[in-house]
């Protein structure tokens, strides 16, 4: 079974998402697999991101990131995120290797100390740089890590008004992801993720991700320009705006080697 570098997976950059089957579980999975197929083989991608973090009490902070992705055969992929701002942590780099069997590893390079640290998988649900996004959001997430269930077809949420969406439930197979389940909205025409609601074990909504400003690249790949992650409990939110999205800039696998992490900035 192929992993899904899905919408929230890498904040929407990795790919988007389709369908017909018997049980709701099969139908859900089939849609996800269709979405994955459409996003396959994009080669490499580089982009810049501006994050605006609002703490819900009037405070704001900005983050500036550079991201590079490499699509590899099967579930495999590599990603590199380098911090540009705030300046005191400029050069901090987050490297993720996802293997063909969908297992992944993550490292962070801390320039002030010149140290590279491996991030335990249990530590990846934590916030990335004080934002509402987690370290996990910066890795490709594979289909195999979740169970799926098609819930219903419905009109799409606000940013895709007028279109038809499928509502699919996605449940992490392993605990430690920081939430019990997600409900994701994908439009039926192009399998693009428009919204994801995160629920805790008490079925309380904890976070909502929305994506808007979808544009098609290379006549094939859909990417959203803006993402918004809102925390339902604290009122905090983080918006992420992509710019300078470029496909096929000739990144090689060696650019993602662990020993070159310190040279990334």
């Amino acid at each position: 079974m192929k992993p899904l570098p899905l919408a929230i997976a890498l904040l929407g950059l990795f790919a988007t998402l389709p369908a017909r089957a018997e049980t709701p579980e099969q139908k859900g999975l089939a849609i996800i697999q269709d979405a994955e197929k459409r996003g396959e083989n994009f080669g490499d991608l580089s982009a810049e991101a501006q994050m605006l973090i609002r703490n819900g009490r009037g405070g704001e902070a900005r983050r500036s990131l550079k991201i590079a992705l490499l699509d590899l055969p099967g579930a495999a992929s590599k990603s590199l995120t380098v911090v540009e701002a705030p300046k005191d942590v400029k050069g901090t780099a987050l490297l993720t290797h996802t293997a063909a069997d969908a297992s992944d590893q993550q490292w962070i390079y801390l320039p002030a100390a010149g140290r590279t640290k491996r991030i335990a998988s249990s530590g990846r649900s934590g916030p990335f740089m004080g934002s509402e996004f987690s370290f996990d959001d910066f890795s490709a997430q594979s289909t195999e890590r979740y169970r799926y269930k098609w819930l219903r077809a419905a009109p799409c949420p606000a940013p895709a008004q007028g279109e038809r969406c499928d509502l699919i439930e996605r449940i992490p197979k392993e605990s430690g992801s920081g939430y019990a389940r997600q409900e994701i909205w994908m439009d039926q025409a192009q399998r693009r993720l428009y919204q994801a609601d995160y629920y805790d074990a008490q079925n309380q909504r904890i976070k909502t991700l929305t994506a808007e400003g979808y544009r098609q690249y290379q006549g094939r790949f859909w990417r959203a320009d803006r993402l918004l992650m809102s925390n339902a409990r604290t009122g905090a939110s983080t918006s992420l705006e992509w710019s300078d999205i470029r496909f096929g800039s000739g990144l090689r696998e060696a650019d993602f080697d662990l020993n070159r992490l310190g040279s990334a900035r």
């Binding site: 290797h97 590893q105 696998e253 060696a254 993602f256 080697d257 662990l258 020993n259 070159r260």
Partner: peptide, 11 residues
């Protein structure tokens, strides 16, 4: 001189 692999290196 660093000869690097995916996660290995000889320096």
């Amino acid at each position: 001189f660093v000869f690097g692999g995916e996660t290995t290196a000889l320096s």
